[in-house]
Amino acid sequence: MGRWEPDARGRLERSALELYAERGFDQTTVAEIARRAGLTERTFFRHFADKREVLFHGSHALEELLVDAVAGAPETAAPMDAIATALGVAGGMFEERREFARRRQAVVAAHPELRERELIKLASLAASLAGALRGRGVAEPAASLAAEAGIAVFKIAFERWAGDAGGPDLPRLMRESLDELRAVTAGA
């Protein structure tokens, strides 16, 4: 190994995504990721529990961001408006990492085990959002319905955004998707 360089986590993330795109997720080893990043396997495991965590390590930060945004929404906000506030905040965060998010999404979409893990992550986010709404005094089933609908909006908008490099920003796509949901449910 050469001289110490900063941003080990970022270098590991970039190296992993490059290798996953070149060779596939299953064919890539932790040793190869570390070597490509100019680091040791030990350093890899200081940052990530396994090679999947490169793709999912930000889940807790996203959950915290969403829950805090729901909790911080105006007291008079309807449940879906509180969810919309949270989605807008999350969309802004993802905009800063668009290329990483696009590449990550391509890897996840190509691998069944990773798609399953993504669905588990989204279910956990929905449960946390429902809890945040209940904390605001929203009763069941309204809290769970709003949270699940919000995660559906997030998922659809995120997939559109990740699939179109030159398209609209994520907060805009989330607003458009939320408007579509409202239009669909208004006619029900």
Rank of each mutant, 00 (worst) to 15 (best):
H60S: 13
V184M: 14
R160W: 14
S15T: 05
E53K: 07
R97E: 11
A127W: 03
I83A: 10
D26C: 00
V184S: 12
H60I: 05
K51I: 04
L62Q: 12
E116D: 14
R175C: 00
A165E: 14
F45N: 02
V30P: 02
A149M: 12
L62D: 14
I120G: 09
R46T: 11
F56N: 11
R160Y: 07
R104C: 02
A34V: 05
R11V: 07
A86R: 08
S15I: 06
R3W: 10
F100A: 02
E41R: 15
G150W: 05
W4M: 10
V107H: 05
L119K: 10
S15A: 15
S59A: 15
R36E: 11
A78P: 01
V184K: 10
R42T: 09
M93S: 13
L19P: 03
R117F: 01
R9E: 15
S177N: 09
I120W: 07
A31K: 10
A186Q: 12
A130W: 05
G150E: 04
A146M: 07
A34F: 10
A142P: 00
E118G: 10
P79K: 09
A31T: 11
F154C: 01
D169K: 03
L62Y: 08
A86C: 08
A149Y: 03
F100Q: 08
W161D: 09
L55S: 04
A86Y: 04
A21N: 01
